[in-house]
């Protein structure tokens, strides 16, 4: 059996209690929601908290209140909410594309947005990692993907995060210093090790989705199998329509960097004009240029880069077709 290391498990009933438990545990404490990311990681000794604090018993985190979604709502619940399917369907659609029905019954929105970054040299058992003398992200000194690099290039692999950045959602965080509201785009760092701007003792409480107001968004995911697999490329596209013309647009790529990467030039290529084939091709090309996947996930690197163009085009064509 691949066993968890030993730890103490705490089940707070309120945010206050959870924050106090984390303050007591210090850096040895970690929050857990569905556990579908943290527990596999603990089995491989990526994370080794001595105290694990479950957020699932906190009523406030399970709330669904208009466009505010509590972070302990499961991905299954998120993908089958009728109100979502009409208006903010890209959020529900991305949640539905995560892994398998069984994992979606367990995994939560918050865990998905805080998902650890991934890499072929990292998501391996302790023994496997030891045999290559580990790497910079955990227990080692060098990066096997880019050995001369001072940083880690592990990949942002959340399906829902690129959508949140694209639609301009806001995250509400509560920590020892109080509460703050962070735009999704400022929640992530392009760094495989320090991939969140969140402090370890802050809890992600809920996500505020923008009200439906003439905008539309879609998410397209590339993976090897139609189930189970993490994205090797995700494309979230958002458009604020202005009649037949594109008012504003955002294109955000998942699976190609250590954060959900917005390509501002791709959005700019669309603004102020109808969504013509030429405009779509220009945006797809603008997204292709800075898309620089590293050789640390499934599939051939250059093919993944090429697919950026194809997936951006498909996403925009879908938005055009349903406008």
């Amino acid at each position: 059996m691949l066993r968890l290391p030993t730890f103490r498990y705490l089940q707070p009933r309120s945010l206050r209690e959870a924050l106090a438990m984390k303050a007591d545990a210090g850096p040895d404490g970690m929050f857990v929601a569905g556990g579908t990311d943290l527990y596999p990681n603990m089995k491989r000794r990526h994370q080794e908290p001595r105290v694990v604090i479950s957020l699932m018993g906190i009523e406030e985190l399970r709330r669904l209140d208009g466009w505010n979604v509590g972070t302990c709502v499961t991905l299954s619940a998120l993908s089958s909410l009728p109100t979502f399917q009409r208006s903010q369907s890209a959020v529900a659609g991305a949640a539905q594309l995560v892994s398998t029905p069984l994992l979606r019954n367990m995994g939560t929105l918050g865990g998905n947005l805080c998902l650890d970054t991934r890499c072929n040299y990292y998501n391996q058992s302790y023994e496997w990692r030891k045999s290559i003398d580990f790497c910079m992200k955990k227990d080692g000194a060098i990066c096997w993907v880019a050995p001369s690099s001072p940083r880690c290039w592990a990949v942002s692999s959340s399906d829902v995060a690129p959508v949140m950045v694209a639609i301009g959602a806001e995250y509400r965080l509560v920590g020892p210093q109080g509460e703050r509201l962070v735009p999704a785009g400022r929640f992530y760092h392009n760094d495989g090790i320090n991939y969140l701007t969140k402090q370890p003792d802050e809890i992600l409480v809920d996500v505020r989705l923008p009200a439906p107001n003439g905008w539309d968004a879609v998410y397209h995911k590339l993976r090897r199998r139609g189930s189970f697999d993490f994205p090797v490329l995700g494309v979230a596209a958002w458009i604020q329509w202005n009649g037949k013309k594109v008012g504003e647009a955002r294109i955000v790529l998942g699976g190609v960097a250590s954060y959900p990467q917005e390509v501002a030039a791709a959005g700019a290529a669309l603004e102020g004009a109808p969504l013509s084939d030429e405009a779509i091709a220009a945006a797809a090309d603008a997204a292709y240029q800075p898309s620089k996947p590293m050789d640390n996930t499934d599939f051939d690197l250059s093919w993944r880069k090429q697919m950026t163009r194809v997936y951006v085009k498909r996403a925009l064509e879908e938005l055009r077709a349903r406008h």
Binding site: Y9, Q11, G34, G35, T36, P40, S54, P101, L102, M106
Partner: peptide, 13 residues
Amino acid sequence: GTAVLSCLVLGVA
């Protein structure tokens, strides 16, 4: 009543 993966659920939960 919900199908879950018992390898990722804690007994104490």
